[in-house]
């Protein structure tokens, strides 16, 4: 509780400092609007619906890319993680692909898919899949072997073993990976919107900057920050619910 109050105080302090710098015109108002002007722009954007549309656009890019990455990452991770042979053969290739910055993939994706939603989906999913897949591989590889013996003794079917033993056992790792991917998905959504001119906050920020509408630009940036913050809090809540059994340890 104390910590929460303290963190709010720090945030309020930053906003105050920002206002002070803007009021004193230490930086030209053309580049730096005060929080008051940014807030007004934000409210105006919502009132006219312009900003709402962009927000929804970004949320959609992020959500589709992240969900696609989650489904594919968990499926591939489960496949690789549950077989020692697969781990031996595939892990080196993964280690080669993983450190590739996603920005290196973007030109390839654009060349193949054009400046389209499909390209954005591919790039976001490609970037967001790594944390999820690697966490899932680790989670599946770390399942207590004794539990597999319990499953054998009960003559459980393969799907039952995956869904009742391996997946729940790996869930803490998987959720941690999904949380990391959430941030990656947001960043890549913005990047794709900027590059491909897709409807979203990234595009809004780009246009505002070009037109020297600094208040609008800051409104967009604030909204991006809020999106990252809120989605990460939602993820924490989901984790706490799904992993309730861990809190009793």
């Amino acid at each position: 509780m104390i910590w929460r109050i303290a963190s709010f105080a720090v945030a309020a302090g930053f906003v105050g400092l920002w206002q002070l710098i803007a009021d004193l015109k230490l930086i030209s108002p053309v580049f730096l609007p005060g929080p008051d002007r940014a807030w007004t722009a934000l409210m105006r954007g919502f009132a006219t619906g312009d900003l709402t549309g962009k927000l929804i656009g970004t949320l959609e890019h992020m959500a589709y890319g992240w969900l696609a990455a989650s489904v594919a990452g968990i499926a591939l991770g489960a496949l690789i993680g549950s077989s020692r042979l697969m781990r031996i053969y595939i892990a080196p290739s993964l280690e080669f692909l993983r450190p590739l910055p996603v920005s290196a993939i973007i030109p390839v994706a654009i060349a193949m898919l054009g400046l389209t939603q499909g390209m954005a989906l591919f790039v976001i999913a490609f970037g967001a899949i790594w944390p999820i897949m690697l966490a899932t591989i680790h989670g599946f590889a770390a399942v207590e072997p004794r539990l597999y013996e319990v499953a054998r003794a009960l003559q459980m079917s393969r799907p039952a073993i995956v869904f009742k033993i391996a997946l729940p056992s790996a869930l803490p790792d998987i959720l941690a990976g999904m949380r990391l991917s959430l941030t990656v998905a947001l960043i890549l959504s913005v990047v794709c919107e900027v590059l491909a001119g897709l409807d979203g906050l990234g595009h809004w920020v780009l246009l505002s900057a070009r037109a020297f509408r600094s208040a609008d630009l800051f409104a967009g940036v604030i909204l991006l920050g809020a999106t990252g913050y809120v989605t990460s809090i939602a993820m924490s809540l989901a984790e706490r619910r799904l992993l309730a059994w861990q809190s009793t340890r």
């Binding site: 004794r146 539990l147 013996e149 054998r152 003794a153 009742k164 033993i165 729940p168 869930l171 059994w245």
Partner: peptide, 29 residues
């Protein structure tokens, strides 16, 4: 291969139970 009419009680009960399932859930398995 193991068969259901032969049950095995392991020494390391801590590892043989599903920590994410309640007592009822573990029996339910």
């Amino acid at each position: 291969e193991p068969r259901r009419e032969v049950a095995i009680v392991f020494q390391d009960y801590g590892k043989a139970l599903l920590p994410w399932r309640t007592a009822a859930g573990n029996i339910s398995l």
